[in-house]
């Protein structure tokens, strides 16, 4: 990629990278805010775990382009492409976070939970002092998978005009300009790798503490 290309597109790449980050970040925040509490609730009523995780699983299997297409005609969502993108990304992020929150808490040594109960921890104390810290590395692993997936899927969001690095890729494909495709793909890949590395470090830190 020449210096000329960079000087021409550098500003746009930076702008679209920020947009990409914003879409993914917002989706991850919402997805975490939904999936972690639901995952915790499922550990309290495990009978619901199968059906709820199955629904999240089905959402995950919808092809991303189709998902954006489904959301397009919806009243409030259809008005702004970014809304569609964020809602679609949330749908993809739910499963890994939900499943790992549930599995992480369910996987805690039964003796630890038994003693937490026997020592007189309340439900909230048990959750915040014992269960969440011990399941943290698991939950983070789910968050990591979800983030990496969403950084990739967010490139498709450009198809409905939501912006992000996908815009460069789509434009590059349409004009058969590989430089533009790479100008979108390389930063997207870099974002995914950075998110993966950073969350991986955090995950290991929690794992060591909970060992």
């Amino acid at each position: 990629m020449s210096a000329g290309f960079l000087s021409q597109y550098g500003g746009e790449i930076a702008e679209l990278t920020v947009e990409h980050l914003w879409l993914t970040g917002a989706a991850m925040l919402f997805a975490t805010a939904i999936a972690v509490p639901v995952g915790i609730a499922l550990t309290r009523s495990p009978a619901w775990a199968r059906p709820v995780i199955a629904v999240a699983n089905i959402l995950q299997t919808i092809p991303s382009l189709a998902m954006f297409g489904f959301l397009l005609p919806l009243p409030w969502l259809g008005e702004r492409a970014a809304r569609i993108a964020i809602v679609a990304l949330i749908a993809y992020a739910l499963l890994p976070i939900l499943r790992n929150t549930y599995a992480g808490i369910q996987g805690i040594d039964r003796a630890v939970i038994e003693v937490a109960l026997a020592l007189g921890l309340t439900g909230t104390q048990r959750l915040f002092k014992v269960e969440l810290p011990l399941a943290a590395s698991f939950i983070l692993a789910g968050l990591r998978t979800a983030t990496v997936t969403c950084v990739g899927i967010a490139t498709i969001a450009a198809a409905v005009g939501a912006g992000g690095l996908g815009e460069l890729i789509f434009r590059g494909v349409a004009s058969v300009d590989n430089r533009l495709v790479l100008a979108g793909a390389i930063p997207a890949a870099a974002l995914a790798l950075i998110a993966d590395g950073a969350l991986g470090l955090l995950e290991r830190w929690f794992k060591v503490r909970a060992a």
């Binding site: 040594d109 630890v112 937490a116 002092k129 014992v130 060992a211």
Partner: peptide, 8 residues
């Protein structure tokens, strides 16, 4: 208890 259940 036998398994101690210490918080790891």
């Amino acid at each position: 208890i036998q398994e101690t259940g210490l918080f790891p």
